[in-house]
Amino acid sequence: SEEWVEIALRLLELGREANINGTILNLHKEEIEELIRRLLKRI
């Protein structure tokens, strides 16, 4: 399964939302940290 691709796409999506909203992603901080942890486990 290409889970890391899904994770990377989700991170990009959150990054785009952050640019549009001008936020520092506090809302998504925990989700982002969890996604990155899952991503690093696969490398």
Rank of each mutant, 00 (worst) to 15 (best):
Ser1Arg: 07
Ser1Phe: 13
Ser1Ile: 13
Ser1Thr: 09
Ser1Leu: 15
Ser1Asp: 10
Ser1Lys: 11
Glu2Tyr: 13
Glu2Thr: 09
Glu2Asp: 09
Glu2Leu: 13
Glu2Trp: 15
Glu2Met: 12
Glu3Pro: 06
Glu3Ala: 10
Glu3Val: 11
Glu3Leu: 11
Trp4Glu: 01
Trp4Ile: 09
Trp4Ser: 01
Trp4Leu: 09
Trp4Tyr: 02
Trp4Val: 09
Val5Phe: 11
Val5Leu: 10
Val5Ile: 07
Val5Tyr: 10
Val5Met: 08
Val5Glu: 02
Val5Pro: 01
Val5Ala: 05
Val5His: 06
Val5Cys: 15
Glu6Lys: 10
Glu6Gly: 06
Glu6Arg: 10
Glu6Asp: 06
Ile7Ser: 04
Ile7Arg: 01
Ile7Pro: 00
Ile7Trp: 06
Ile7His: 00
Ile7Cys: 15
Ala8Gln: 03
Ala8Ser: 03
Ala8Tyr: 09
Ala8Val: 14
Ala8Pro: 00
Leu9Gln: 05
Leu9Ala: 04
Leu9Gly: 03
Leu9Ser: 03
Leu9Pro: 00
Leu9Met: 08
Arg10Pro: 01
Arg10His: 11
Arg10Asp: 03
Arg10Glu: 03
Arg10Tyr: 09
Arg10Leu: 10
Arg10Thr: 03
Arg10Gln: 04
Leu11His: 00
Leu11Glu: 01
Leu12Trp: 06
Leu12Lys: 02
Leu12Ala: 03
Leu12Phe: 05
Leu12Tyr: 03
Leu12Val: 06
Leu12Glu: 04
Leu12His: 03
Glu13Asp: 05
Glu13Ile: 08
Glu13Arg: 04
Glu13Pro: 01
Glu13Tyr: 07
Leu14Cys: 14
Leu14His: 03
Gly15Arg: 02
Gly15Ile: 15
Gly15Cys: 14
Gly15Thr: 07
Gly15Asn: 05
Gly15Asp: 03
Gly15Ser: 07
Gly15Tyr: 14
Gly15His: 09
Gly15Phe: 15
Gly15Val: 15
Arg16Lys: 10
Arg16Tyr: 13
Arg16Phe: 14
Arg16Ile: 13
Arg16Val: 11
Arg16Asp: 03
Arg16Thr: 05
Arg16Leu: 13
Arg16Glu: 05
Arg16Gln: 06
Arg16Ala: 07
Arg16Ser: 10
Arg16Gly: 10
Arg16Trp: 14
Glu17Arg: 12
Glu17Thr: 07
Glu17Asn: 08
Glu17Asp: 07
Glu17Ser: 09
Glu17Leu: 14
Glu17Trp: 09
Ala18Leu: 13
Ala18Asp: 03
Ala18Ser: 05
Ala18Thr: 05
Ala18Pro: 03
Ala18Met: 09
Ala18Glu: 03
Asn19Tyr: 14
Asn19Met: 15
Asn19Val: 15
Asn19His: 14
Ile20Asn: 05
Ile20Trp: 10
Asn21Lys: 08
Asn21Asp: 10
Asn21Arg: 07
Asn21Thr: 13
Asn21Leu: 15
Gly22Trp: 06
Gly22Asp: 12
Gly22Ser: 05
Gly22Gln: 08
Gly22Arg: 04
Thr23Met: 07
Thr23Trp: 12
Thr23Asn: 12
Thr23Pro: 10
Thr23Cys: 15
Ile24Leu: 03
Ile24Glu: 08
Ile24Arg: 04
Ile24Met: 05
Ile24Gly: 06
Ile24Tyr: 05
Ile24Val: 02
Ile24Asn: 10
Ile24Ala: 05
Ile24Pro: 05
Ile24Thr: 02
Leu25Gly: 12
Leu25Ser: 14
Leu25Thr: 14
Asn26Trp: 14
Asn26Ala: 08
Asn26Pro: 09
Asn26Phe: 14
Asn26Lys: 02
Asn26Ser: 05
Leu27His: 13
Leu27Tyr: 09
Leu27Ser: 14
Leu27Arg: 07
Leu27Gln: 12
Leu27Asn: 10
His28Asn: 10
His28Ala: 11
His28Tyr: 13
His28Gln: 11
Lys29Thr: 12
Lys29Val: 15
Lys29Asn: 13
Lys29His: 10
Glu30Leu: 07
Glu30Tyr: 04
Glu30Ala: 07
Glu30Gly: 08
Glu30Val: 06
Glu30Asp: 13
Glu30Ile: 04
Glu31Val: 12
Glu31Thr: 01
Glu31Gln: 06
Glu31Asp: 05
Glu31Lys: 04
Glu31Ile: 12
Glu31Leu: 14
Ile32Gly: 00
Ile32His: 00
Ile32Ala: 02
Ile32Cys: 13
Ile32Gln: 00
Ile32Trp: 10
Glu33His: 08
Glu33Asp: 07
Glu33Met: 12
Glu33Ile: 13
Glu33Asn: 09
Glu33Ala: 12
Glu33Thr: 07
Glu33Val: 13
Glu33Ser: 07
Glu34Pro: 00
Glu34Val: 06
Glu34Gln: 07
Glu34Gly: 04
Glu34Met: 07
Glu34Tyr: 08
Glu34Ser: 06
Leu35Ser: 01
Leu35Lys: 01
Leu35Tyr: 02
Leu35Ile: 05
Leu35Arg: 02
Leu35Gln: 01
Leu35Glu: 01
Leu35Phe: 06
Ile36Ala: 01
Ile36Gln: 00
Ile36Gly: 01
Ile36Asn: 00
Ile36Met: 02
Ile36Glu: 00
Ile36Trp: 03
Ile36Phe: 09
Ile36Asp: 00
Ile36Lys: 00
Ile36Cys: 08
Arg37Met: 06
Arg37Asn: 04
Arg37Tyr: 05
Arg37Phe: 09
Arg37Glu: 06
Arg37Lys: 08
Arg37Ala: 08
Arg37Ser: 03
Arg38Phe: 06
Arg38Gln: 10
Arg38Ile: 09
Arg38Leu: 08
Arg38Pro: 01
Arg38Val: 07
Leu39Ile: 12
Leu39Val: 10
Leu39Pro: 00
Leu39Ser: 00
Leu40Arg: 04
Leu40Trp: 09
Leu40Ser: 03
Leu40Lys: 05
Leu40Phe: 06
Leu40Ala: 08
Lys41Tyr: 08
Lys41Gln: 09
Lys41Ser: 08
Lys41Ala: 12
Lys41His: 14
Arg42Asp: 11
Arg42Gln: 09
Arg42His: 13
Arg42Leu: 15
Arg42Ala: 14
Arg42Asn: 09
Ile43Gln: 03
Ile43Gly: 03
Ile43Phe: 07
